[in-house]
């Protein structure tokens, strides 16, 4: 058997260690190597930029000491579960020299295919993304809480005689006696089945009239609650249309009529 040695590509061999060093230090992500004691063996210049902690203070130190106390158990668990072919991802917080928090996405894997340690890792700063998500979540949460606390039922329904519900606010329960989950996308238990038989046709006709004319509707009719009692409700809404004018559904608000 003859070993054939292919000539090496010159492009790789020309990258000197100085260039490699410069390359690593030019990156805007943290690159690091962890040894078998989970201590930092190497860390690039981005570490200092991101955390304001000098590189010398991080080298040969356990990396977990720079992680937010609440995230350390996740980090330790990740290190314990890491395998030779693992490529793990984790979101965690680094505590900077100024006591600030930097959210990071950590990607970690073994450097060699035949053993677990040392590990190589990159830490990408996702603080602005996390803050943006928090703001978006807070707005959504606030709106959702507002809608669910209102003593009315907001709905989006399909335009069929059952008025099959796609969305219902939590006010549904106090108005009808059924939870929103029970009524969503149901054909048997639906708003249509709760409307008084003598009012059902009137409701259908009035809504269809409003939909055809692309106007709003404001109706009063009788509704049977879950315990069989009859209440009078006011239903105010409008149609949902595509750009071409096709009717996609009905949206509105139902509340108990005062009279």
């Amino acid at each position: 058997m003859k070993l054939i040695k292919w000539p090496q590509k010159t492009t790789n061999s020309t990258v000197s260690s100085t260039q490699l060093h410069k390359l690593l230090n030019s990156l805007s992500d943290i690159v690091l190597i962890l040894d078998h004691n989970h201590q930092v063996d190497y860390i690039n210049a981005c570490w200092e930029t991101m955390t304001a902690i000098p590189i010398e203070q991080a080298l040969r130190q356990s990396f977990s000491q720079f992680i937010h106390p609440e995230d350390r158990s996740n980090w330790n668990q990740l290190l314990q579960n890491i395998k030779q072919d693992s490529k793990e991802t984790l979101w965690l917080r680094l505590v900077t020299a100024n006591r600030d928090i930097r959210w990071c996405e950590v990607r970690i894997q073994p450097m060699h295919s035949d053993r677990i340690f040392p590990l190589s890792a990159t830490l990408c700063d996702i603080t602005s993304q996390v803050r943006h998500d928090q703001t978006r979540y807070a707005n959504h949460r606030s709106l959702q809480s507002l809608i669910d606390r209102l003593p009315v039922m907001l709905y989006r329904a399909r335009n069929n005689k059952s008025w099959t519900m796609e969305y219902l606010s939590d006010g549904c329960e106090s108005l009808t006696g059924y939870s929103a989950e029970k009524l969503l996308n149901q054909s048997q238990l639906c708003l249509g089945s709760m409307i008084h038989r003598d009012d059902a046709a009137y409701v259908w006709d009035q809504v269809q009239y409003a939909l055809q004319n692309q106007t709003t509707f404001d109706l009063k009719y009788r509704l049977f609650q879950a315990d069989g009692s009859e209440i009078r409700v006011q239903d105010k809404g409008r149609g949902l249309y595509s750009d071409s004018g096709m009717i996609l559904g009905v949206e509105g608000i139902i509340l108990q009529a005062t009279e």
């Binding site: 937010h68 106390p69 609440e70 917080r93 505590v95 928090i101 803050r131 928090q134 703001t135 979540y137 807070a138 707005n139 949460r141 606030s142 709106l143 809480s145």
Partner: peptide, 16 residues
């Protein structure tokens, strides 16, 4: 309190 407003509450609890 989160459910009463649209304010972003960021809890940073470093108590071990």
């Amino acid at each position: 309190f989160e459910h009463q407003s649209a304010i972003v509450f960021d809890l940073d609890n470093r108590l071990v």
